[in-house]
């Protein structure tokens, strides 16, 4: 297990390899479909400082508000590939050091990880109850009214948030390897090699 303190520098991120298990600590920001298209189309300055050297978590949480304070009730990762058209550019534009999600991403993001020094971290999909416990504090929320609860950008503090590096800054992708292997087996099973 590698402990990563956010914000994190480029050198430390470039040391990570596919298969490394990490525990994240510090402040990161959630973002999914609406947030990603907003960041590309309007290039908002208000999120620059927040995103620099930290991670974007692909997550649309279930939240609770009591006594004026937000907390996360359930917060697993959502499918990342939907952000493929935007992610690489966002990593470059906002100096993001990584994204956390599920399912992995495509060649455009993989190239951006290498170019800018970032990683793709995979969290366990569906494990929302446990992952929400790693979110110790909600600091702020951006665009709540306009985007709605799942799509808003939640600024959260995490403690020992677990994830696995499945795409690194050296051009390696576990997802690509598994797909190639399983496709060979599938072709053999149905005799269309």
């Amino acid at each position: 297990m590698i402990k990563l303190q956010l914000p994190v520098g480029e050198t430390q991120i470039r040391r990570l390899q596919v298969g490394d298990e990490v525990l994240l600590n510090g402040i990161m920001v959630t973002g999914r479909d609406a947030a990603h298209s907003w960041m590309i189309e309007e290039k908002p300055d208000e999120v620059r400082e927040l995103l620099k050297n930290t991670m974007i978590y692909h997550c649309g949480p279930i939240v609770r508000k009591s006594g004026g304070t937000w907390s996360f009730v359930a917060a697993g990762p959502t499918t990342s590939i939907r952000e493929e058209p935007y992610q690489g550019d966002i990593i470059g534009e906002y100096q993001v050091r990584g994204v956390i999600g599920k399912g992995g991403m495509g060649p455009k993001t993989l190239a951006a990880l290498k170019k800018y020094g970032a990683v793709y971290l995979h969290a366990v999909g569906g494990a929302a109850a446990l992952l929400a416990q790693a979110v110790v504090k909600v600091h702020d929320v951006i665009k709540l009214e306009e985007f709605g609860v799942p799509e808003a950008m939640w600024v959260i503090e995490v403690k020992d948030f677990p994830a696995i590096v499945t795409m690194d800054a050296h051009g390696n992708s576990l997802h690509k390897n598994i797909r190639e292997q399983s496709t060979k087996i599938a072709s053999r099973l149905i005799g269309i090699e």
Binding site: G60, A74, G76, A127, A128, A129, A132
Partner: peptide, 10 residues
Amino acid sequence: ENSTPICQDT
């Protein structure tokens, strides 16, 4: 145990 959703995507 906590009576919270298993997954946030209900």
